[in-house]
């Protein structure tokens, strides 16, 4: 039954993309949902992770530096380190200032990272991007259904591990300090908690998770190019978190599923309605739709679908 197998292959691809988005969204939830840090450069941190992993894992090549052909897991780990480090530096420069400055700086990071991916040919392959990134379960690539399911299982496993880890973190004393700082910085400071230090930790960890999402995406598709990391990515992840419910890890995952489904459905719809030569134009309508969903949610239901649960401590049934 080739049709069924095709459906399985497509379905697992679709769900895998949701999982990858959910990972980025969980990273944002740590930054924004738990700590109230406004990152407008998500695409940049995802790109740093994707390119790090690609340079570490691709086979030797003359097209760009790197090509170390290291194991995929090392690539993912390296992605978390570079993206986390980049977030740390950005945070160290801006977190002591007004919250808007972090937004503006992260926006600048995304613009600059995009510029580097486009122009630093020897590092990033320029506008041609980087191809032949090793994929997990490559040996099954000739059987799309098996390949898709195996990758989906891997991605789901990463999402579950992150979810459980972040939930534990949220309920830990560390998580409580983050929310205390978010709600009332002065009160937290009076208890001897350095707001900037905790914020910096949360921001760097969230950035590392975003980098992981970029690395997994790069390994899953096998090819990356600068235009994968435009501001529309940042915008999608934000909408996912806001619609799902910021401050809620389950909401981050739910939002990723809902918004990616909406995105694909509107893409399918515009593909049906508009003739081929108008497709690029019609794709803009998808962004308008997501923009309306984001703005509408912020105004009408700012807590999102799930909203934040009151978490006091894992020792209490709060």
């Amino acid at each position: 039954m080739p049709d069924l197998l095709g459906l399985v292959a497509y379905g697992s691809f679709f769900l895998a993309i949701i999982g990858i988005n959910a990972i980025g969204c969980l990273g944002l939830n740590l930054q924004w949902g738990q700590t109230g840090l406004f990152n407008v450069g998500i695409a940049g941190f995802i790109a740093i992770g994707a390119y790090t992993s690609a340079l570490l894992t691709t086979p030797a090549t003359t097209d760009h530096i790197g090509g170390l052909h290291l194991p995929i897991l090392i690539g993912w780990l390296g992605a978390m380190i570079t993206s986390g480090l980049a977030s740390f530096l950005v945070g160290a420069a801006t977190l002591r200032l007004r919250s808007d400055y972090l937004a503006i700086t992260t926006f600048g990071v995304a613009v600059t990272v995009h510029l580097v991916t486009l122009n630093a040919q020897s590092l990033t392959g320029g506008s041609f991007g980087i191809a032949f990134i090793p994929r997990p379960f490559e040996t099954y690539a000739s059987q799309p259904a098996v390949f898709g399911l195996a990758n989906l299982a891997l991605i789901v496993a990463v999402v579950v591990v992150l979810y459980v880890g972040l939930e534990r973190l949220v309920r830990s004393p560390w998580g409580r300090v983050l929310r205390a700082i978010r709600e009332e910085e002065r009160a937290a400071a009076s208890l001897g908690k350095s707001a900037t230090r905790y914020r910096l930790q949360a921001f760097a960890l969230g950035g590392a998770i975003m980098g992981l999402s970029g690395a997994i995406h790069a390994s899953f598709i096998g090819f990356i190019a600068p235009d994968n990391y435009l501001s529309s990515v940042t915008f999608q992840i934000w909408t996912m978190l806001i619609v799902g419910g910021s401050g809620n890890n389950l909401g981050a995952i739910l939002g990723a599923a809902l918004i990616w489904t909406t995105w694909s459905a509107t893409g399918f719809f515009t593909g049906m309605v508009f003739p081929p030569e108008q497709q690029a134009r019609a794709a803009a309508l998808q962004i308008v739709a997501i923009g309306l969903i984001l703005s509408g949610t912020i105004v009408i239901r700012p807590r999102g679908l799930l909203g934040e649960r009151t978490t006091v401590s894992r020792h209490l049934n709060g």
Binding site: S231, S232, F235, W238, T239, A284, L285, Q286, I287, V288, I290, G291, L292, L294, S295, I298
Partner: peptide, 8 residues
């Protein structure tokens, strides 16, 4: 969000 929508 508004900037994305207006530009698109």
């Amino acid at each position: 969000g508004a900037s994305m929508a207006l530009r698109a």
